[in-house]
């Protein structure tokens, strides 16, 4: 029952789609095609990302992660966070559970905010596409400004939220 409840939004939308299908079949068919394609894309991309995160959880010790993403990690923190955030594909909500896992392992709030910001800005696989369709100037402004902005946001958020408070507020995962 609990499991079905988590799918309620999906079923509500499915009902909406059925209603549309009665009124305008062309729109409904297009919706099914678009949705089907993006679901297949996601199902293809997600397994390796989650496998890597699962392995990271098992093999990377708290001490190591604190060294790379902890409060005193400095330039390593920026570099390591960027690497983690930009190599993975997928929408930002995939990054939420990963971020909380990193936080539990001792990453500082600053780098968690930077991680989420970088995830929503730069994706190495998509970078080439942005560059070819919007030009170098646009892409550089986008990436440089967003990364600088989120790094500063991270510094501000670090003063507002402690690691412990965020973990206490986490209601989903009990690791």
């Amino acid at each position: 029952m609990m499991k079905l409840k988590r799918y309620r939004f999906f079923f509500i939308l499915l009902l909406g789609l059925l209603l549309i299908a009665f009124m305008n079949q062309a729109i409904a068919i297009k919706t099914v095609q678009l949705t089907g394609k993006s679901i297949l894309d996601m199902l293809f991309l997600l397994p390796p990302i989650f496998i890597l995160v699962g392995l990271l959880d098992q093999w990377v010790t708290k001490e190591t992660l604190i060294r790379y993403m902890g409060e005193k990690s400095g330039i390593y923190g920026v570099f390591f966070t960027l690497l983690l955030a930009t190599i993975a594909a997928g929408p930002l909500y995939i990054a939420f559970p990963i971020a909380i896992l990193l936080l539990k392992k001792g990453a500082s709030v600053r780098y968690i905010v930077f991680f989420l910001g970088a995830w929503s800005t730069v994706k190495l696989p998509v970078l080439l596409y942005e560059f070819t369709s919007f030009g170098l100037k646009f892409t550089l402004i986008h990436i440089c400004f967003a990364l600088a902005f989120y790094y500063l946001t991270g510094i501000i958020f670090e003063k507002m939220y402690s690691q412990q408070k965020l973990l206490n507020d986490n209601a989903t995962m009990e690791i």
Partner: peptide, 29 residues
Amino acid sequence: TALLKSWDMFQKVLPDLLAIMLFIGLALS
């Protein structure tokens, strides 16, 4: 253990993922 953890994370995001994908499909059409 790592793979079980991966599967667990996947299961947790799947409902939202499906709903959001369908929502985007609807919105875009």
